[in-house]
């Protein structure tokens, strides 16, 4: 284990199971294992990218860290402090250190509030400043994220998607957090706007000593912004390594297939495409053994019966696959 002081976030064996209730008697008939036994850590000032396809549990993971959902089991530590069961005032304190930027800037800003209020509210709600101080601090943040002061009294609907995302980022920054969880923060934006927001996030990271957990399905974006990358499949973290390591030497067959599926511009650099058959299985009925076994081109007998354990290689490259055990 690395020095605990260096880590903003540590997750130990986090599980998030959602019960499936029968329609009439409301008995629990099974579980959707949205996040299944995930352990990871994020160092100070680091960007960890989490990638995976829809339904792999990456958003749920982000929400568990924010304690929007209460995990079924496991432990979450932020700056070394266990917050898994934090309540009330304690939880409020946690959320000062850890903020979230959402995918849909339309849905995550209150349409009846002026954007200035949206950004300054966290400051006085948390009793960091009085309302007046909060307002001037919010104006400062506005300028930093590239909004005009005249925008301060406008309503969210008056902004374009990219500008709204800037408001969302200013709100997240207001409390001076250590960690920002960005859940598909640029996925809804057009490419030219996406570049503006990605650059802004990178600048802010250095300025405010932030760590990011960047959740996305876009491999090119995750490659651009991350220091380390974790790949999720069906609730499991199947591979985790430094960015360069993952792109140059992917170990898990799923990561290989994922990387080969991304269309590239330069034909000479195209990887040999591995086309997976079928769709991601229903998370309520995952295959037995390895979760990827039914689509894996390298599936062996053991994969169908036993779940692979997480292996850590010398260079810190983690992979959960029977090929390497």
């Amino acid at each position: 284990m690395t020095n605990a002081n260096q880590n903003v976030l540590e997750l130990d064996n986090i599980k998030m199971y959602f019960p499936i209730k029968s329609p009439f008697l409301k008995r629990t008939v099974g579980y959707v294992k949205a996040v299944d036994d995930i352990s990871l850590s994020i160092r100070k000032g680091e960007t960890l990218g989490i990638v995976g396809e829809s339904g792999c549990g990456k958003s749920t993971l982000g929400r568990v860290i924010m304690r929007i959902y209460n995990p079924t089991s496991g432990e979450i530590r932020i700056n070394g402090e266990d917050i898994t069961r934090a309540k009330g005032q304690e939880l409020k304190k946690v959320r000062k250190q850890c903020q979230m930027v959402f995918q849909d800037p339309f849905a995550s800003l209150n349409p009846t509030m002026r954007v200035g209020e949206i950004v300054s509210e966290p400051l006085w709600v948390n009793k960091i400043m009085d309302k007046k101080g909060a307002e001037s601090k919010a104006k400062e943040l506005f300028e930093r994220v590239g909004l005009r002061e005249s925008d301060f009294y406008k309503f969210p609907h008056e902004f374009s998607g990219g500008q709204k995302q800037r408001v969302g980022i200013a709100r997240a920054l207001a409390l001076n957090p250590n960690l920002i969880i960005a859940d598909e923060a640029v996925s809804a934006l057009d490419v030219s706007i996406q570049a503006q927001i990605l650059n802004l996030l990178n600048e802010l990271k250095a300025e405010y000593h932030l760590a990011y957990m960047f959740i996305t399905h876009n491999l090119a974006v995750v490659k651009h912004i991350s220091d380390r990358i974790g790949v999720m499949y069906l609730g499991h973290l199947v591979e985790l390594a430094d960015k360069k390591e993952i792109f140059d030497h992917p170990l898990h067959p799923y990561t290989e297939a994922l990387l080969s599926a991304v269309p590239v511009v330069d034909k000479r650099k195209r990887r040999e495409r591995i086309i997976l058959s079928g769709d991601t299985p229903n998370p309520a009925k995952p295959p037995s053994g390895c979760p990827f076994s039914n689509r894996c081109p390298k599936c062996m007998e053991i994969c169908k019966t036993a779940a692979p354990k997480k292996m850590v290689l010398e260079n810190g490259h983690q992979v959960a696959c029977h090929l390497y055990q």
Binding site: V191, S192, A220, K223, V262
Partner: peptide, 24 residues
């Protein structure tokens, strides 16, 4: 040119993405 420079590609490394100011 600007559009191609503003998109991150998986086969390229760009320090900073080119950003086109303004909107359509």
């Amino acid at each position: 040119r600007a559009l191609l420079a503003s998109v991150p590609f998986i086969d390229q490394d760009k320090e900073v993405l080119h950003s086109i100011p303004g909107t359509v």
